[in-house]
Computed example of a mutant assay.
Amino acid sequence: MSATLVLALAGLALLDSTSFGTLLIPIWLLLTPGRVRAGRMAVYLTTVAGLYFCLGVLLVLGADAVLRSVRAALADVDPTHFRVGQLVLGLIVIALSYVLEARVRSRSGTPGRMRRWRAAAMSGAVPDGGDEGGREARGGGARGLMSLALVATALEAVTMVPYLAALGLLANAGQNWQVTGGALAGYCIVMILPAVLLGAVRIAAHDRAEPVLQRINDWFTRNSAKALGWSVGGIGIGMALNAAVALLSPPA
């Protein structure tokens, strides 16, 4: 596996590490009053990483078959036409980034919903779909945290563009399953690493770390939609620029 591919996967994993499920919910867990319960963090993050890994294995299996079919279908396609298609797709991804940003902004702007998610994270329960004045969470303990991780991962399925891009790179790399599985596991570890590091700081510094975590939480709550838009848009810009450079470069 080349160094370029490793760096690309690491960058995409770090983008994924700033999502709602991999950073904001863990910060809420760390802001729970009293002593930090490392076991709750471990259950939640392990579940998230495991879900992403299992989903990645299934998608890479499908992507590998799809890529073989696509390569066969595009074998006789003019390279210029292929690059034009890549340019168009990059522009579509850039447009999609604005749509996703607007959707996340509209959803996160609902105070009742955010309070229910925060209450669910801090109690280790599943978010309740009832009204704001009703019961905010149901369930609890390890089972509730695992269910919360499942719900968070499912809700983020439509915003997994960095993850899908990483899976595409892995499927296109032509590595054996040992290397691909190891790279996918490493991706999932990097994806939860910032939350793990914040947890270690919170345990070591105790209440002194709480103001920092609160500032990160406030910033993330305000700017999560913009961060998503920039991350998805960055992928589209990269695709479009790569195609444009290829189209403008003289043939070898």
Rank of each mutant, 00 (worst) to 15 (best):
G21L: 02
Q175M: 13
W117P: 01
W219Y: 13
T32P: 02
G112T: 10
V77K: 06
S97N: 09
G129L: 14
A171P: 01
R222F: 04
A165F: 12
D16Y: 05
T110A: 15
I94R: 01
L74E: 08
Q214Y: 02
M122F: 02
R135C: 09
A95F: 03
D207Q: 11
D16Q: 12
V36D: 01
W117Y: 09
D207G: 07
A173V: 03
A142L: 07
L29T: 02
L14K: 04
E132M: 03
G236I: 06
L55K: 00
L155A: 15
M191L: 15
S69R: 13
F20T: 01
G56R: 05
T110H: 11
E101R: 15
A63E: 02
G139L: 03
L31P: 01
G134L: 08
G11Q: 04
N172M: 09
P211S: 12
R143T: 12
L213G: 08
Q178A: 15
P250I: 09
A246Q: 12
I27M: 13
N176A: 14
I216K: 08
V104F: 08
H206N: 13
V88P: 01
S106V: 09
A8K: 03
D128I: 01
R40M: 05
M1F: 10
L91R: 06
W219H: 11
V179D: 11
M146S: 12
Y98T: 11
L213F: 13
G90N: 03
L58V: 14
T32V: 10
K226E: 06
M1Y: 05
T22R: 08
P162N: 06
P79C: 11
A205E: 12
A121F: 00
L197H: 05
G112E: 14
V36G: 01
L167Q: 07
L7Y: 07
A75S: 12
L91S: 08
V57K: 09
V66L: 15
A154Y: 12
Y98V: 13
A149R: 01
Q175N: 04
V84T: 06
L148R: 01
L228P: 00
R68A: 15
P211K: 09
S97M: 06
A252C: 00
L184K: 03
Q214V: 07
A157E: 08
P211C: 13
